[in-house]
Design a protein around this nucleic acid. Structure first.
Length: 480
RNA sequence: GGCCCCGUCGUCCAGCGGCCUAGGACUCCGGCCUUUCAAGCCGGCAACGCGGGUUCGAAUCCCGUCGGGGCCA
């Protein structure tokens, strides 16, 4: 049997990290098994679905490097892959279920439903509606044909229970007293999530449904529906939920939850992907940095953790740093450039790019987020504003001014202008002034870069060039 | 409230009856290196929720309890 899985987000919000992880696990499972991944748009909620969110989901998937074989934007034998274009199919399915007796037109009044619920509550029983006020089929049918609007409910077999083997959780059992005669088609003819999703999984020949644990208790409904549709239910795998640092379900108040926010914040797709993979699953080794190929080779749904995982940005950040340092210099420059230009508010000229490329290796090893690069190299590309805290801390110390002035005259004569000569020259100055490296070099750093934190000084000075370096030393000494 | 799921360091993951005086990673704290900041290296703190069983032996199996989460209301 060929594995066919689907990722089916609703375009009612940006793709968030939980969705990203679900997408990733579906992708890994499909690729490991040599199966097919389908991307479906569950956009039956027309009021809340937007093109912007749809685009974001597609973009985020692509950014993460998760490709799909069938679905929206890709096409395939089961087109269309957007639920909003399949409404007729859901109505047909509902009608067929009514015809077969698996579902019924529901004429229960709100009062009856309330009454049921109240009684159940009082008796300490589950508030799941059991269909007791259901009309005789012929009466319901004639009322419906006479034009009365009614939702369609699924007739859950009672008594009964549904048991299934969840791929990550093992055997799960639900007594049908817990499952209400759920609505599958609203009175306005729109399908509910349960119907649309189940019909699609059936029509698209989905073999494994890999989704979040929040859908676990809906699974009996989907299994019952699939059987009534004449199908064999797929295997289900429910992934543990992602939580915020406070232990509650991850949400916007925990900070960034949209995948795209991580992109703009300077995270690398491969780091986000790796972190997400490692969050609820382990490759089975002590190594946590795992190549995509290894992930695909080792991935196993059965090895997915059952307990919810806290999304820890700090660890993601660390991992991002690891991936950044792992980039080739050329790659690093390519990825960094947009962020540098963003920081400067302008694009870099060709010669400026070369300058950047020269200091890139130095910057690369001290970067955790691509957004940190701009501030580090800003001094190369325009006026520097002195960081006042740095200034106060460094430039007011004894010997600071002497160091700046001494550097000014010595550097004017340094030849050739390279890191070695610059270092030799400045160390001679330190000896002469009897200043420690720390005391003597920090003022130069602030003078040249504007901050007490910067890439290594001698290289930075070389990259800046003689002319600008002298100008900066001049300006600083005038200010001291 | 009902049902379902989950429970190993602060966090993530390993452990699937003896290899565990519980391992790795992030964070944190020391130290080394050092022109700042990083990176790197070395070292340290830190957990099997609790109570009963089963067993020669339990983090690992069973029951209960407590706690957390989800769904429905």
């Amino acid at each position: 049997m060929t594995v066919r899985v689907r990722f089916a987000p609703s375009p009612t919000g940006y793709l968030h990290v939980g969705g990203g992880r679900t997408a990733l696990y579906n992708w890994l499972f499909a690729r490991h098994a040599g199966g097919t991944l389908i991307l479906r748009s569950d956009d039956t909620d027309v009021a809340r679905s937007t093109q912007e969110y749809y685009d974001d989901i597609v973009d985020s998937m692509r950014w993460l490097g998760l490709d799909w074989d069938e679905g929206i934007e890709a096409g395939g034998p089961h087109e269309p892959y957007r639920q909003s274009a399949r409404l007729e199919r859901y109505r047909e399915a509902a009608a067929a279920l009514v015809a077969s007796g698996a579902a019924y037109y529901s004429f229960e009044t709100p009062e009856q439903l309330d009454e049921f619920r109240r009684e159940a509550q009082q008796a300490g029983k589950p508030p799941a509606y059991d269909g007791r006020f259901r009309l005789a089929d012929d009466e319901a049918r004639s009322r419906f044909e006479a034009g009365a609007a009614a939702p369609v409910r699924f007739a859950v077999p009672r008594p009964g229970e549904t048991t299934f083997e969840d791929v990550v959780r093992g055997e799960v059992r639900f007594d049908h007293v817990q499952v209400d005669d759920f609505v599958i088609l609203r009175s306005d003819g729109s399908p509910t999530y349960h119907l649309a999703s189940t019909v699609d999984d059936f029509d698209f020949r989905i073999t494994h449904v890999v989704r979040g644990e929040d859908l676990l208790s809906s699974t009996p409904k989907h299994i019952l529906l699939t059987h009534a549709l004449g199908g064999t239910p797929p295997a289900y795998a429910h992934l543990p939920l992602l939580m915020g640092p406070d232990g509650s379900k991850l949400s916007k108040r925990h900070g960034h939850t949209a995948i795209n926010a991580y992109r703009t914040d300077g995270y690398l797709a491969e780091a986000v992907r790796n972190y997400l993979a490692i969050l609820s699953w382990s490759p089975g080794t002590d190594e946590e940095i795992v190549s995509l190929a290894d992930m695909v080779e080792r991935f196993d749904l059965g090895g997915v953790s059952k307990s919810p995982a806290v999304f820890d940005v700090t660890k993601l950040e660390w991992m991002n740093g690891v991936y950044i340092r792992d980039l080739s210099v050329d790659e690093f420059v390519d990825r960094a450039l947009p962020f540098v230009e963003e920081e400067l508010g302008r694009s870099l000229a060709a010669n400026e790019r070369d300058e950047f490329a020269r200091v890139a290796p130095l910057v690369q090893e001290r970067t955790k987020l691509l957004t940190e690069i701009g501030p580090q190299v800003r001094f190369l590309f325009g006026d520097i504003g002195y960081d006042e805290t740095s200034w106060d801390k460094v430039m007011t110390k004894a010997g600071a001014k002497e160091a700046v002035i001494g550097a000014l005259s010595r550097l004017a004569a340094a030849d050739p202008w390279d890191t070695t000569t610059i270092e030799t020259t400045l160390r001679e100055l330190l000896d002469e002034l009897e200043l420690s490296a720390r005391k003597g070099l920090q003022p130069l750093r602030v003078a040249v870069t504007g901050s007490s934190v910067s890439p290594p000084l001698f290289e930075s000075i070389e990259a800046l060039g003689r002319e600008r370096t002298l100008a900066r030393l001049e300006a600083a000494s005038a200010r001291m």
